[in-house]
């Protein structure tokens, strides 16, 4: 269970996140949407422990992210908007570094490495320097490092950015598969159809505030008739930002 409790964060005078709260359980896929500058990346950075909140708390199970960072970080996988890659390294060399730095033992690392290379379609490129990979494959390498330690919570900031349509479908399948294993998946995107396609829960934020949160079926049918996420998104964002 992930509990985000009233997290707020300012950058100087700019209030990026204003008391954001939500809870999701195992097996959920949360689609995180909002206009540019809405606070998505800030929220994701706080959830992963990358950034400290000014107030509020984030609990993964019984553990608070910022009170027990080492413990919680070992259970979180994060893919930032720009994949954090050492481009001079080969793919498998990079993943080995990530695994060792996370304290994985040799046998566990060997098994997980094969698993994530296969799941992300990188097996054939394992010995290639990351600098020679296309943007799509770099994105996969970034995803592979987030999956390597088999985290309970996966936080992905625009994971399909730079992927071609076939790769996007592969990514959707991968995320569905991870959720089916009981993992919590949070992803942000500007592609609303993507959220409709794979998210079990939807969170819409603007100006750092939660505009809507709930199960996809409940949110998109909330006014009594089926409506698209685009309509809901536009109506909520325009209402708050006329």
């Amino acid at each position: 269970m992930l509990n985000v409790e009233a997290i707020s964060r300012s950058y100087g005078r700019f209030l990026a996140l204003n008391g954001l709260s939500f809870s999701i359980g195992k097996g959920a896929i949360l689609g995180f949407v909002g206009p540019n500058g809405a606070g998505k990346t800030t929220a994701m950075s706080i959830i992963t422990g990358l950034l400290a909140a000014d107030s509020g708390a984030v609990h993964l199970g019984d553990d608070e992210v910022h009170a027990t960072p080492s413990l919680v970080k070992s259970r979180i996988g994060f893919l930032p908007e720009t994949p954090p890659l050492y481009t001079a390294m080969e793919v498998s060399e990079y993943l080995r570094f990530c695994g060792e730095a996370r304290g994985m033992d040799r046998q566990q690392l060997g098994e997980r490495l094969e698993n994530v290379l296969a799941n992300t379609g990188l097996s054939a490129r394992r010995n290639m320097p990351i600098s020679t990979l296309s943007r799509g494959y770099r994105q996969r390498a970034g995803l592979a490092q987030a999956l390597l330690h088999d985290p309970d919570l996966l936080v992905l900031d625009e994971p399909t950015s730079g992927l071609d349509p076939a790769q996007i479908l592969d990514m959707h399948e991968l995320l569905r598969g991870l959720a089916a294993q009981g993992k919590i998946v949070i992803f942000s995107t500007h592609i609303l159809s993507e959220v409709e396609a794979i998210a079990s829960h939807i969170l819409i934020i603007n100006h750092g505030r939660c505009l809507a949160f709930g199960e996809r079926s409940a949110l998109l049918g909330a006014d009594g008739k089926e409506r698209g996420l685009t309509d809901l998104f536009i109506s909520l964002v325009k209402k708050r930002n006329p």
Binding site: L50, S70, K73, L85, A101, R102
Partner: peptide, 14 residues
């Protein structure tokens, strides 16, 4: 500069 700092900060190490 290379954005890999984010990777280091998400490692379970102080």
């Amino acid at each position: 500069r290379g954005n890999t700092f984010q990777l280091l900060l998400t490692l379970p190490a102080p």
